[in-house]
Design a protein around this nucleic acid. Structure first.
Length: 967
RNA sequence: GCCCCCGUGGCGGAAUGGCAGACGCUUCGGACUUAAAAUCCGAUGGCCAGAAAUGGCCGUGCGGGUUCGAAUCCCGCCGGGGGCACCA
């Protein structure tokens, strides 16, 4: 008789809630218990509800948490809602309801769905990023950023007051561009500083300039920058939110335009964000993604002077123009400097107007206009090199040779210095450009073997320098060093490091986000709202639509916007923070969710941090996971948190794909073709949902996929074919679940039909947590059978009698006892390593051994139930109660295994002859090698293989096998 | 184009230098049943021999190598997935 999962699951979920079974203890109450902070990436509560991917990660952390509780850990395992953001707001606009109402409804639904899975969260610690009591502290952390700067002496964030001190004391000086740097005089560089001092001292600045310098150094600052403006969403987006020139949310077109926006100075942390990855137990691939995103390159800056030319005045025509007739390039290959035969500036480079002679002005302007109108998308699809000669020449810093100066859009104004020295012989892009524009190509590096670089291609690898008087015959690595040293001696350049990472664009022109705790004066300069006035609550608005212009919706809240402080009138900042703000620090709030005085109590923070296990999707590799590391480091520098990194160990759960689909392909005329004949089978969107399209290998004709019934498919050889027509090969693959494809699995239906315990077991049994794997509803029955069988084995299978425990007192039979100890070892180790599929297999195996064996010894029965508990907690609690316990097993000690019980008294050893298995022998576990070899040689099925042969070698791998080498 | 990961039965997967295919699904046969479902028992990588017990050969994408021994390590290729993509 199957057990009634509906009743049992409801009963125990209510019990756990009523008894606060999973409440984490505050450090003061925890005594000597070790702590474990086990964290899920909290969900964005969308209107579509939970999908089956959410429970995958949540169940994994739940099993781990339940296991650690039984191992005596004080476990913090919380859940909350990342609820600000675009989808709820879009829905609200379309349906004319307030986003807060829509969000609350979605949260209710998500909470219901998550709770029906029986996850052991401490619900007393639930957080919601849209709750003013939460975002009060998001705003507070923003003010920490606003009130700090990155100190170049200490390489960390410091309060802004310290910056004033350092400037006043002249430890720091102000550069020509308003940047702050270490006073060269403090570094023993007086002679350079004395020669031409381009920096200015604090006392030389006017109060206005002083304020600009301070504001310009803040970790949160306002700047006019080229941004990603998305007209359809009516907001700007960060680089991380733009994929292939389109918005990550909604796939809308994005254009670049300069706007005045809030920025966060994440670039100051680029080095530490790279270096500290080494402290983390994260998937190597994910660390690599962060390293690539930060994009650290080491090399040199090299200065180039412009050759004097007619029509180019030696002094600037206006104040806006740069007064220096020189520019700086960045290169990772200073050793190839002798091979630089031209230079390229980005089309947006400020020097171009200054140096272009009248004869070339028209051509240059035309090219710049063309580049400006080109979309990012077009730029990505068409990488044919374009550019134009400016008519100007640069002087080679070593040879003094005149080399032509081009502008081209393959040089990006946003990276390095926006200018390059082009070495066509040793750079693919420069090579392509030089060939197209017929520019000299000069080889300065030869492969170490002395072979000539292949024709028609640049030699980009390392080798030995040639045609380079200063560094001839030096291998690349040494050549670089020698060249940098020379450049520094001659003041022609210097060692340099650059990053791909840009500062984080932090403001959005939307309503549904955290307001900035900032007031703007009449010159639009920012002032912090006093901490005592936090939270700055989002004003209620009936019309919260984006304006379609860069003017944010909050400007419509006119009463809210105007404030007066100390007789002065200010305007509130009307941009809002991006979706990611709330998720940057939510893990810290779980530690102390109701604290009204601080964002987290320091003693509690010190106890719980860092997060011991963090599980979530890989889609946050460069968004949430980079942003929150950055915020955490700022908080660490300022002394608000105790660890340099927030998440010690991280696992990405693999995507769950839809059920396997089978497609045949037909042409427009209805003729069918085998999938094997096609190339480039890919998905194309249509109004009816995506469909499969393939191109015929020979004819190039387009074929469209037709879905076929899996029952009509079989495998022949290495391919799938139709049973009804084996000449037609079938394409078999699983796709990402999507509404438009109609292959989404709804967790409500699975839990309703099979129960939460079965659902949990099924998802954990599908395969390794990290692996991508297809959903297969048919397989669920296996887990139903397993739990039903457990129920029968423990509670009796007599349908006419009421269920009662099928248990006897007394010792466990020896073979079962050994199996039990092995299971205790295996299941415990597997859970610790998050290998749930093999842990479940071990439990199934043990249960199979109990099947049909009569009453179960109590000790074995209890241990089995305890091991089952993390995976199928409802059923386990019910059985535990039936076994006579009146308390939940949630904190009952995990069973212990006895290593002595694992040892077999006799061993079954495989015997190989020349590496091929021929027989197995039974030997006493303590037999010596000689005895074992003799037994092996005389084994019945081994002897025929030895006849007439000489044994060359006898190998015995202790307790593993015997291998006899004969010839 | 560059970087990373992965290719094992009809399917999901196990084994990470030592018995390939644990465990689950599927399929087939049997038991129970008036019947069906559920449940239980047995078989289930391919080929060959045998009435059977059983035995042999082949087999972890393909080709080579290292090793007494390779799914596992190394080299080259093919296929799939992911990331980055004019980053100097």
């Amino acid at each position: 008789m199957p057990y009634n999962f509906t009743t049992i699951e409801k009963k125990w979920q209510e019990y756990w809630r009523a008894n606060r079974s999973f409440a984490a203890l505050d450090p003061a109450d925890a005594g000597q218990m070790p702590k474990a902070f086990v964290l899920d990436m909290f969900p964005y509560p969308s209107g579509a509800g939970l999908h089956v991917g959410h429970p995958e990660g949540y169940t994994a952390t739940d099993i781990y948490s339940r296991y650690l509780r039984m191992r005596g850990y004080n476990v913090l395992h919380p859940m909350g809602w990342d609820a600000f953001g675009l989808p709820a707001e879009q829905y609200a606009i379309n349906n004319n309801v307030h986003p807060g109402i829509e969000t609350e409804r979605n949260i209710q639904n998500f909470r219901r769905q998550i709770q029906m899975l029986g996850l052991s969260y401490d619900w007393d610690r639930e957080v919601n990023t849209t709750d003013p009591r939460y975002y009060r502290w998001t705003q507070w952390i923003f003010l920490q950023l606003f009130n700090s700067y990155f100190d170049p002496i200490q390489n960390k964030a410091m309060p802004i007051a310290h910056l004033q001190n350092e400037l006043f004391n002249e430890n720091l000086v102000v550069g020509p561009d308003g940047s702050v740097r270490i006073n060269p005089a403090q570094e023993g560089m007086e002679e350079i500083a004395g020669e031409v001092r381009i920096e200015r001292l604090w006392r030389e600045l006017s109060p206005e300039e002083q304020r600009d310098v301070i504001d310009g150094q803040r970790l949160a600052y306002i700047d006019e920058v080229p941004v990603n403006w998305c007209p359809a969403l009516g907001t700007v987006l960060s680089n991380e939110e733009v994929i292939d020139g389109r918005s990550e949310r909604g796939n809308h077109a994005v254009e670049r335009r300069p706007m005045r926006q809030w920025m966060l100075r994440i670039t100051a942390y680029a080095d530490r964000l790279v270096d500290d990855l080494n402290l983390l137990e994260w998937p190597e691939s994910l660390k690599e993604m962060q390293r690539n995103w930060i994009g650290k390159s080491t090399g040199a800056y090299i200065d180039f002077d412009i050759a004097p030319a007619e029509g180019v005045p030696a002094t600037p025509a206006s104040e806006d123009e740069p007064d220096d007739l020189s520019f700086t390039v960045f290169t990772t290959r200073p050793d190839t400097l002798y091979g630089a035969t031209y230079v390229v500036l980005a089309p947006e480079h400020p020097l171009i107007d200054r140096i272009t002679p009248p004869s070339h002005r028209a051509a240059v302007e035309a090219y710049r206009a063309q580049v400006a109108s080109r979309s990012d998308r077009d730029r990505m699809e068409n990488k044919e090199k374009t550019g134009v000669f400016t008519g100007a020449y640069a002087l080679h810093p070593l040879t003094g040779e005149k080399i032509p100066l081009y502008i081209a859009d393959y040089v990006l104004i946003t990276y390095g210095t926006g200018a390059i020295m082009a070495v066509p012989a040793h750079d693919e892009r420069d090579y392509e450009f030089a060939v197209k524009f017929k520019i000299l190509i000069r080889t300065v590096v030869m492969p170490a073997g002395g072979h000539l670089p292949p024709e028609g291609k640049a030699f980009v690898e390392e080798g030995v320098a040639v045609n380079s008087p200063l560094i001839n015959n030096l291998p690349t690595l040494q050549a670089k060093e020698r060249m940098i040293a020379h450049l520094e001696e001659q003041d022609l350049g210097r060692r340099a490091v650059t990053y791909k990472l840009r500062d984080w664009l932090f403001s959005r022109q939307r309503y549904w986000g955290e307001p900035f705790p900032i007031l703007l004066d009449e010159q639009d300069r920012p002032t912090a709202v006093d901490e005592s006035e936090l939270p700055v609550e989002l004003p209620p608005l009936s019309d919260f639509k984006p304006t379609g212009t860069p003017e944010p919706p909050l400007t419509k809240a006119t009463d809210w916007v105007r404030v007066s402080r100390g007789g002065q009138v200010y305007m509130r900042e009307t941009n809002t923070m991006p979706q990611w703000a709330g998720s940057c620090w939510y893990y810290l709030r779980y530690i102390d969710p109701n604290n009204e005085e601080r964002f987290v109590d320091p003693a509690k923070e010190k106890y719980w941090m860092p997060v011991d296990l963090y599980v979530g999707g890989v889609e946050h590799a460069v968004l949430h996971l980079l942003y929150s590391r950055f915020w955490h480091k700022v908080l660490f520098d300022l002394g608000h948190v105790s660890t340099p990194e927030p998440f010690r160990r991280l696992i990405n759960q693999g995507l769950i794909l839809g059920e396997m689909e089978f497609h045949t392909f037909t042409a427009a005329d209805g003729s069918a073709v085998g999938a094997i004949e096609l190339t480039d089978i890919h998905e194309e969107p249509t109004p009816q949902g995506p469909r499969q399209v393939g191109v015929h290998k020979e004819t190039g004709e387009r074929y469209v996929g037709v879905r076929v019934n899996p029952d009509d498919v079989e495998k022949r050889g290495d391919r799938f074919v139709l049973k009804s027509n084996p000449n037609i090969t079938v394409d078999a693959r699983a796709f990402k679940m999507s509404k438009s494809r109609g292959n989404v699995v709804n967790p409500d239906e699975i839990v309703g039909g099979y129960g939460a315990d079965v659902f949990r077991l099924y998802e954990m049994y599908m395969g390794p947590l990290e692996a991508q794997k297809p959903w297969n509803t048919r397989d669920i029955i296996g887990m139903t059978r397993f739990l039903n069988s457990v129920w029968r084995n423990f509670m009796g299978s007599d349908e006419n009698a009421p269920p009662k425990p099928n248990v006897i007192d007394g010792p466990v039979p020896e073979d079962l006892d050994r199996q039990m100890h092995r299971a205790i070892k295996k299941v415990g180790e597997d859970i610790a390593d998050l290998r749930f599929n093999t842990a479940i297999a071990e439990l199934i195996k043990l249960n199979n051994s109990l099947t049909g064996g009569g009453p179960i010894s109590r000790g074995l029965a209890e241990n089995f139930v305890l091991m089952l508990a993390p995976f199928a907690p409802h059923l386990a609690e019910e059985l535990w109660q039936a076994l006579g316990h009146d308390k939940s097993l949630a904190r009952h000690p995990w069973p212990k295994f006895d290593p002595a019980r694992l040892i077999e008294t006799t061993l079954e050893l495989p015997v190989q002859v020349n590496g091929k298995l021929r027989d197995k022998i039974m030997v006493p576990a303590d037999a010596d090698e000689q005895t074992i070899l003799t037994t092996a040689e005389s084994a019945e099925k081994v002897r025929p293989w030895l006849e007439g042969k000489t044994i060359r070698k006898r190998l015995y791998v202790p307790k593993k096998l015997v291998n006899l080498v004969v010839s």
